[in-house]
Structures are given as C-alpha cells and as structure tokens.
Design a protein around this nucleic acid. Structure first.
Length: 510
DNA sequence: AGCGGAACGC
DNA sequence: GCGTTCCGCT
C-alpha cells in the first residue's frame, strides 16, 4: 500500500552536504544502499542523513565525542522517521527501541548520562561498508577493546608511518613527522590535495594523536586523548570500498559511483597520494567523475571553505575541543548548535576510548561482523510461549491512517516498499548530475572490472572464525583484475594476504 | 529517560 | 534481518 509519505529527506537537494558543519562521513555512509542486505532505509542511515543536513541541526546534531550525536528533538526525529517509514504513529519511544537494537549490533551505543545522546560505532559502520578496510587494519590489530565503552585504551595510535607504509606499500616513503604524504613538488593533482599523514589522525604518526581532517585543515585541533571509540576513521574517504556493491537497482538513487569497481573507486577517492595509485588516465577520469559528483552534490550549495581540494565526499564531524577554533571556520554551525556542542564537549573524552587505527580497526575486526552474529543475542522465546500481554504485536495495533493528516508530507515520492530502494531518486537533479559524472567512469575502466563476487571475501565475521578456515585466496582474484588495472592496485590484494598472514600468526600464537 | 523481552510484519 | 509495537521494569 502506498502511502506517499516519503519525507523530503533524500529528496530535497540537501545542503551542501559535504562540508556543512558537523558531518562526518563519506557519502557512502549516508546511502541506504550502503547497508548490504538491506533494501530499505535503515534507521542509522536515516540518522546519518539527518545529521548530514544542516536544516536538521536543530533536531539532531553531532555533539560531544566523535561520532556522538544528540537528538535535540526526539519527537521530531521520530516524526521524520515515521514519515520515512510510513509509520504515522512512530514516536520516540519506538524509535529508541529501534536504536537500542543497534546496541547489540554495535552500530550505536548510548552515551550514558546524556539525554538523547547516542554514539556511532564507526568501525562497525565501516565494516559493513568497507570490509577490506578492516582486513587492512588487521595487521595492526593490537588492541582488544571490547566495546567496553572504550575505556581503557592507551592514548595514541600505535600505527606508525611504517605500518601505514606496509598498508600501502606503494606510498611514498614514510617518515615520522615528515611530510609523508605531502606532495613533493609536481603539479597539484586535480584535487590539489596536499595531504599529509596528519590528515589521518587515526593513523597517528608517533606524534600527537590529534590532527585535522583532510582539507578542512584549518585550525582544527583535537584534544588528545584522541577518541575513536571503535576506531573507525571517518576521515578516510571512502577508500576501501570492497565487497559492498549491492546490486544496483536500475534508477537507483545513487549512481553506480558508489558501487563501481571498489578498487578503483577506493583509490580515486583517496586523497592525492592514494588516488595517484591509479594510472594517470584513470586518475583523471576518476577525478573528473569525482569533481562532477562534487559539483552535483553541491550544486547550488554554498560550498565555501570546502572548495579547495579536499578529498571528495568526505565530511567532517565536529570534534570535542575543536569547536572553539574550528567550528566557525567550518561554516554556519548555528549558535545554538554550537552551544550544544560545547556543552557536550564538557564530558569530553571520558566516555570513549582512545583508539588509534590499529586498535580501533582491530576492534572493528573483532567486533565487526561478529556484531551481526551477535545481533540476535536477545534471543526470543519460542513463539508458542508468550503472547500473554494484551498489547499484542505491531500488526494488531495498526491504526488507521487518520493521523496521516498530521504529517507534513513535503514530497510525494511514493514510499511503497517496492520502491523504497530508489526513493524516487531519479527525480533529483542533483543525482542526475552525479550520475552523469559517474557515467564518465562507468564507460571507462570501471565497467571492465570484475564482478564483486570475484573479490575477496569480506572481513571475517569473527576473529576466531577467521582463523580456522583460512580460505585460500580466491585463485581467481589476481586474474580477475582486468589488464587495464595496473599493478599499483595490488596493495589491496596484498592487504588481503597480509591479513591472512596475520591471522595465521595470531592463531599460531594462541 | 532508558532498557530489553516478546510478538509480529514486511 | 530490520524494525514496529507494546510492555514492564528501573
């Protein structure tokens, strides 16, 4: 039954999403499709969407620790969610129940002591979307933060430039505190990035654990201890997309850009040194696509500070301690929002762990998909048992849609379940533009790339499980790389191997 | 406010 | 699998 009640979220050409204050993720995080196996918009995606949009800053906003957000207007958020899901009777109580389910899944957790405040588990999020990323991190897995609220992690990331180097063997030589990634001479790339290691705060460099997000570089100090509770590094642009190419429904909201060849996209989305791993032609094409995409995404938007050469599609979250210096430069935060943030800041790092890449991502690996398997933890009684409470399940209570009138439906895209995947996306001019940008690439190397199915398996659901059946690397893997793909893309594969090696070692040691 | 079990729908 | 709805409990 259609209810035509999709909200405008997703449909209104959003704010210049990328660089509006307080937005943290590469765009993939905002895409409903970025949740494999799930057709419909998921709540956490929806939350991200809201967080992404400036106009909802008064309703929900980043605040406090990294990844932490506060629902300023629970009823409104619930209402919006209800609109999106065509659940006119949605309320915060129900919504929060849904959020609570994320606890077990390690997608979210509650920030205790702060009302309506939750926190994203980015490592989980990234795992779902970038399994390989997790693998890559595995070699540096030293920590065992068990999602304990992130307490006892040491301060800085143990990941050294050398480690990074081993992650990306083809990167320029690492040097501590040096200009690891700074472009040494040469014409600035399309992105004009001047990215250094400090653009990867999570990686650390032996130096302070705090840094600035790439290209937002202004004064954006972080307070050590650095807090990446679960270790996701949202500063890394969608770099490791792999195995996450949902079947792209024709006419999908999101252009194939988001699910194209993972390797290529990954690299092309990385800041300069990474993107330069692509062959020149591809790099340019990718850059062009990215640029087109950026243009599309921000068309009409006030891009302002973001203009100059930041890695594409990377949004910067607020960070405690950053406000004083950083917020203002970041754009139109809004005084109220800022005040809120500063308030949240007071609690600071206390609630979270301090993780670096190795730890955090290690954790991600450990918890990662395992969280999924744990997801059902709650365990249900056998259906026969209960049923006593008169309240009855959802279906029973369904009320008639009278209250639909309460909804302010700003968009008429239908939200029948059949169509929810594409959400009337084709209607969005912005998306069209993107798509065009994409086509650029689609016609190129990307289209020649192997099906994702031939790519390595995703990160192991459980650290132990991954040890046991070390499935041999898909023999098809290297061959499946089209000849057009330069060997420079091999790091990813190398990472897989490295991952396996590491896991093997771990097994041996245990 | 927040939690989690349970039944249920899709 | 992912909520939705309801509920009792803290």
């Amino acid at each position: 039954m259609d209810c035509n009640c999709v909200s405008d979220l997703l449909l209104t050409p959003p704010v210049p999403a990328l660089w509006t204050p307080g937005f943290a993720f590469p765009d993939w995080a905002y895409k409903p499709e970025s949740s494999p196996g799930s057709r419909q918009i998921q709540l956490w995606h929806f939350i991200l969407e809201l967080l992404q949009k400036e106009e909802y800053q008064g309703v929900i906003a980043w605040q406090g620790d990294y990844g932490e957000f506060v629902i300023k207007d629970p009823d409104e958020v619930a209402r919006l969610w209800g609109i999106r899901k065509c659940k006119p009777h949605m309320n915060y109580d129900k919504l929060s129940r849904a959020l609570r389910y994320y606890y077990n899944k390690r997608i979210l957790h509650k920030t205790k002591g702060k009302r309506f405040t939750y926190k994203f588990n980015f490592s989980k999020v990234v795992l779902v979307n970038y399994p390989l990323f997790d693998m890559a991190s595995s070699p540096f897995l030293l920590a065992q933060n068990h999602f304990n609220g992130g307490s006892a992690a040491p301060d800085c990331s143990p990941v050294t430039p050398e480690a990074l180097q081993s992650l990306f063997p083809r990167l320029p030589e690492a040097s501590r505190g040096g200009s690891l990634f700074e472009r040494s001479g040469g014409a600035p790339g399309p992105e004009g990035d001047k990215l250094r290691l400090d653009a990867f705060p999570f990686l650390g460099s032996g130096a302070p654990c705090y840094s600035k997000p790439p290209s937002l570089l202004g004064p954006y100090p972080r307070n050590p201890p650095f807090d990446y509770p679960w270790g996701f590094n949202p500063y890394l642009p969608g770099a490791f997309s792999l195995n996450n190419c949902p079947k792209l429904p024709p006419g999908s909201l999101y252009p194939s850009h988001f699910y194209p060849n993972p390797l290529q996209t990954s690299l092309s989305q990385l800041p300069h040194p990474f993107s330069s791993l692509l062959p020149p032609g591809d790099t340019e094409a990718a850059a062009a696509a990215a640029a087109a995409e950026r243009g599309g995404a921000q068309s009409g938007g006030t891009n302002g500070s973001a203009a100059g050469g930041q890695p594409p599609r990377l949004c910067i979250p607020p960070y405690p301690g950053s406000q004083a210096l950083g917020r203002t430069e970041l754009g139109s935060g809004g005084a109220a929002a800022q005040a809120e943030r500063e308030r949240g800041e007071a609690t600071g790092p206390g609630s979270g762990g301090i993780l670096g890449l190795g730890q955090g991502l290690g954790l991600g690996l450990g918890l990662g998909l395992g969280g999924v398997s744990l997801g059902g933890v709650g365990g249900r009684q056998s259906p026969s048992e209960r049923r006593t409470s008169g309240g009855g399940g959802g279906g029973g209570v369904k009320q008639d849609p009278e209250s639909d009138s309460d909804l302010e439906i700003t968009d008429l895209s239908d939200c029948s379940s059949d169509n929810e995947t594409d959400f009337g996306l084709t209607k969005s001019p912005r998306l069209d533009i993107r798509t065009q940008g994409l086509d650029l690439k689609a016609g190129g190397v990307a289209s020649a790339l192997p099906p994702l199915s031939s790519l390595p398996p995703p990160a192991s659901p459980h650290p132990l499980k991954s040890l046991v059946p070390l499935t041999p690397p898909p023999p098809s893997l290297p061959p499946t790389l089209p000849p057009s793909l330069p060997s420079s893309l091999s790091p990813s594969i190398t990472l897989v191997d490295r991952h396996r090696e590491t896991e093997t070692l771990k097994l041996a040691h245990s």
